[in-house]
Amino acid sequence: MTKELGKRELNKARKRAEIVAIATHSFLENGYAATSMSAIADELGGSKTTLWSHFSSKEELFIAVVDDRVDCFGKDMEAALEDNRFSASNLRKICIAVLQKLIEENSRRLFALVLAEGSRFPEIVEAFYTRGPSRLRSDMRDYFASHFDQRDAEELSRVVRAALLGFRSDAIIRPIMPTKAEIEAFVDVLLSRLGLDKIAPIEA
């Protein structure tokens, strides 16, 4: 019975992941307004009840898509970290990884979708901000707080985050995406200007 239940839960998780993958493509390709639950159900195949058993609304499905993108982002950030304590080399690695993720095609398209349709659908702005930028703000503040006092950690987090998001905004309107060398050069200048490039880590 336990084995059968485990198999059932695994199949359910696989079907949910399949739905999210289809919805991600639809939202990014067609936009929020032009994406319908019926069209997603048709592409999924089988009974429409299957889709509705996983997601009760388009908003809930969009939130799942954003959560999936944020989870991918988080895994990349974990890979960029040797540990979560501040060091100049560690911060450089994090900033480069964040920028590379922010200018990925799907990240750019999701951001553009929220900008384009957020005024008509404020719920997607809230879902995106809560699960994306807000989490980045919190994680970056906590990271700086491993070395600086709370006030400095908050200010450094705000300035660094604003610089990274500004770079992303500039990249979106450029005809050619920045190269890795350009990203690294930008991060080096940013950390140098803030005086963060020479701060020694606190010994454990």
Rank of each mutant, 00 (worst) to 15 (best):
T2N: 10
K3D: 08
E4V: 12
L5S: 15
G6W: 03
K7H: 11
E9C: 11
E9F: 13
L10Q: 13
K12G: 07
A13P: 00
R14C: 08
K15Q: 10
R16D: 03
A17M: 08
A17L: 14
E18K: 12
V20N: 04
V20I: 08
A21G: 02
I22A: 01
A23P: 03
T24E: 03
H25C: 04
F27K: 09
F27P: 04
E29F: 15
N30E: 14
G31V: 11
Y32R: 10
T35M: 09
T35L: 08
S36Y: 00
I40Q: 01
A41W: 08
A41F: 10
A41P: 03
A41D: 01
D42K: 10
E43R: 09
G45I: 00
G46M: 06
K48G: 00
K48F: 01
T50M: 04
W52I: 06
S53N: 07
S53H: 14
S53G: 11
S53E: 12
H54Y: 02
S56Y: 14
S56P: 15
S57M: 01
S57Q: 00
K58H: 04
K58F: 02
K58D: 03
E59N: 13
E60D: 02
E60I: 09
E60V: 02
L61V: 01
A64G: 00
A64W: 00
V65R: 00
V65Y: 00
D71G: 01
D71F: 01
C72S: 08
G74F: 02
M77T: 06
M77V: 11
M77P: 06
E78H: 13
E78I: 13
A79H: 10
A80Y: 05
D83P: 14
N84L: 15
A88N: 05
R92V: 14
I94C: 05
I94K: 10
I94V: 13
I103W: 00
E105W: 05
S107A: 08
F111R: 15
A112Q: 11
V114D: 02
V114N: 05
L115W: 14
A116K: 15
A116V: 13
P122I: 05
P122E: 07
E123I: 11
E126D: 08
A127W: 04
F128G: 10
R131D: 05
R131S: 07
G132R: 07
G132C: 15
R137I: 03
S138T: 11
S138G: 09
D142V: 14
A145K: 13
A145R: 13
H147Q: 12
Q150Y: 10
R151H: 14
R151V: 15
E155S: 14
L156C: 06
S157Q: 15
S157R: 15
R158T: 06
V159F: 08
R161C: 08
R161D: 09
A162W: 10
A163T: 07
L164I: 02
G166F: 01
R168K: 12
S169M: 12
D170Q: 12
A171C: 02
P175V: 12
I176A: 04
T179M: 14
K180S: 12
A181C: 06
A181F: 01
E182D: 06
E182A: 05
E184F: 07
E184K: 09
E184C: 04
V187N: 09
V187H: 10
V187W: 10
V187P: 14
D188G: 11
V189I: 06
L191R: 09
L191C: 04
L191N: 03
L191P: 01
R193G: 01
D197C: 06
K198G: 11
I199Y: 04
I199T: 12
E203F: 13
A204L: 15
A204M: 15
